[in-house]
Simulated assay, not measured.
Amino acid sequence: MEIELKLLLTQVDRNELVSALKQAGRTKSDQTHFLVNRYFDTPELTLRHLDVGLRVRQKGEHREQTVKTAGSSDTGVHRRPEYNVDIDGDWPDLALFPVEVWQGEEVAALQQALTEQFATNFRRHALELELAGGTLLEVALDCGEVLASGKSEVIDELELELIRGDLGEALQLASRLAERFNLRLGQASKAARGYRLAGLSPQPPLQAEQPQDLASGLAGWQCNEHHLMLGTQGALEALVAQFSGLSQQLFDREPALAVRLAALGQGLMDAPDPRERLAQVMATTAYGQTQLALLALLPEFQGE
């Protein structure tokens, strides 16, 4: 099971970030690689419909095929079962994975129908970091691009993957980093971004209703933030609804955080160009700190 916290970076000095990470714990390994990742599916997107991601990753001369099956990634914490197998060539061999991965689909037919759909190529600075409480993390600082259908999107993100220990300790590390660096929670995986860029998967729908709980509000925040940056009609009102709903839920429990959320929404409503205003606030430490403070209030981080 892969469990990781994904953080998107905005105008961050990567050398300073690596230095801060190394100061946060004991560095057990420190490596830099260029990774070439090719993602596969059938023309009918059978794997996508099964909620299965399939890739072949090349690192130097080494190649590894990976499948990630259905999991969750609603708030920036990503949980997905993952299977990895070393291979010799550039094309995946589905028979090397456990048969239950394919959920009753005929493996030979899937194999014959596979085609490459998109790629994600990036330089990864990887650290294995042991924190003071004993939690061990695989830290990945990725910089590169998603490539699909002649188009590209930038990859600039930090992943904190739990190897052992307490995910809450990883969140504490992220919160300390957010005091110095412009970062925010990332909801979409690289594979999800690739499918969307290739035109093979729709954008997630706007979350227009006020949230019923903190988790749905945080997920709606990230979804509607994405839509506002895309210029989707109604995105401003939908995003402000998330801020308003979260603020109301937190008014008695965390009044300072509630005020901060309400101010974010009001600032967007008052701005001549809400999209430009959102870009400005995303390039501040306060934005990520607010998201992480909200994430820390979810039951899974409160021992509930």
Rank of each mutant, 00 (worst) to 15 (best):
M1P: 06
E2N: 08
E2V: 01
I3K: 15
K6E: 10
L7E: 05
Q11D: 11
R14F: 04
E16P: 08
L21C: 02
A24C: 08
K28L: 06
T32P: 01
T32D: 07
V36H: 03
V36P: 07
Y39K: 15
D41Y: 07
E44G: 01
L45G: 10
T46G: 09
H49V: 05
V52D: 02
G53V: 07
R57Q: 09
Q58A: 11
E61C: 02
H62K: 09
R63D: 02
A70Y: 01
G71M: 10
G71L: 12
S73T: 09
D74F: 03
G76L: 02
G76C: 00
Y83L: 10
D86M: 08
D86A: 08
D86I: 00
I87P: 00
G89N: 06
D93E: 13
L96E: 05
V99F: 13
L110W: 11
L110F: 11
A113T: 15
Q117A: 08
F118Y: 14
A119G: 07
T120L: 02
R124N: 13
H125E: 12
A126L: 09
L129W: 00
L131K: 09
T135E: 03
L136G: 12
L136V: 03
A140V: 06
G144T: 15
E145F: 02
E145N: 03
V146E: 03
V146Y: 09
S149F: 04
S149D: 14
G150D: 00
K151T: 11
L158C: 06
E159R: 12
L160G: 04
L162N: 07
I163E: 14
G168M: 04
G168K: 08
L171N: 12
L173G: 14
A178Y: 00
E179S: 00
R180E: 12
R184E: 01
G186L: 09
Q187L: 10
R193T: 13
R196D: 00
P202I: 01
P204E: 01
P205E: 12
L206F: 05
A208W: 10
S216Y: 02
G217S: 06
L218H: 02
L218P: 03
W221D: 06
Q222F: 06
E225H: 14
E225V: 02
M229Y: 05
L230P: 06
L230Q: 13
Q233E: 15
G234I: 13
E237H: 06
E237K: 14
L246F: 04
S247F: 10
Q248H: 04
Q249E: 10
E254C: 15
P255N: 14
A263G: 06
A263H: 14
A271I: 15
P272D: 05
P272Q: 07
D273G: 04
P274W: 14
R275C: 12
R277N: 03
A279V: 12
Q280L: 11
Q280S: 15
A286P: 12
G288F: 13
A293E: 13
L298R: 08
P299G: 06
E300G: 01
E304D: 14
